[in-house]
């Protein structure tokens, strides 16, 4: 999967987790820009991403997540390792 496809899947996951569709999503988007994305729903998002892409993040991965692009990078890295 390339970065655009992962981003598109992330949007779908977020719509389901946050139960809203009215947000813009790009690699530069941060949690602060999406109203429903708070610390509590973040955990559900992580679980949903892991389930969707069938990957497992390590605690090191989360530390460098500052924007959506960082999540995409983590998924790319995990996917590469898995594949």
């Amino acid at each position: 999967m390339n970065r655009d496809e992962i981003l598109s899947d992330l949007r779908m996951i977020m719509e389901d987790v946050f139960d809203c569709t009215d947000f813009d999503l790009s690699e530069q988007t941060t949690a602060a820009e999406i109203e429903a994305w708070d610390s509590l729903s973040h955990i559900r998002l992580v679980v949903a991403i892991e389930r969707h892409f069938q990957i497992k993040f390590s605690s090191m991965d989360f530390r460098y997540w500052n924007k959506v692009g960082d999540i995409v990078t983590s998924v790319v890295e995990k996917g590469t390792k898995a594949g």
């Binding site: 610390s39 973040h42 955990i43 992580v46 679980v47 892991e50 605690s59 989360f62």
Partner: peptide, 8 residues
């Protein structure tokens, strides 16, 4: 965060 992520 560390607690919730480790118990996810």
């Amino acid at each position: 965060n560390p607690l919730a992520l480790s118990a996810r």
